[in-house]
Amino acid sequence: MDLSRTSADAATKVVLAQGEAPVFAPGERVRVLTRSPVGHYRVPIYLRGKSGVVESVIEPVGLDNEEEAYGRNAGMKRHYYRVALPMTEIWADYDGSPRDGLHIEVFETWLERI
């Protein structure tokens, strides 16, 4: 068997490392988790439990800034997503147009698909 030759299929099959491919796609509905870590975070309280739509996937992947905050400068990277949420979803008494929105980058580990 000639190991220097491979089938066209095998030659083009690329397996991505864990976390390399985005988990969420633009247009998908997501909810920001409500977990409340003891330590550092970059997901403001006002967003917790709120639902929105993934507007775009931020490239390139980045470190989890909750880990970076404790001096970890390397490690597994994941995507941030720019999420669009209606102001009326966040603030029950929002005074403005119902079309007004909040846009924010949220790290993958903080989102769930709905």
Partner: peptide, 15 residues
């Protein structure tokens, strides 16, 4: 005006 949509971007990460 009310018919203009306001989009607030809250910067928190790498962008």
């Amino acid at each position: 005006p009310d018919d203009v949509q306001i989009r607030v971007s809250d910067s928190t990460a790498m962008v």
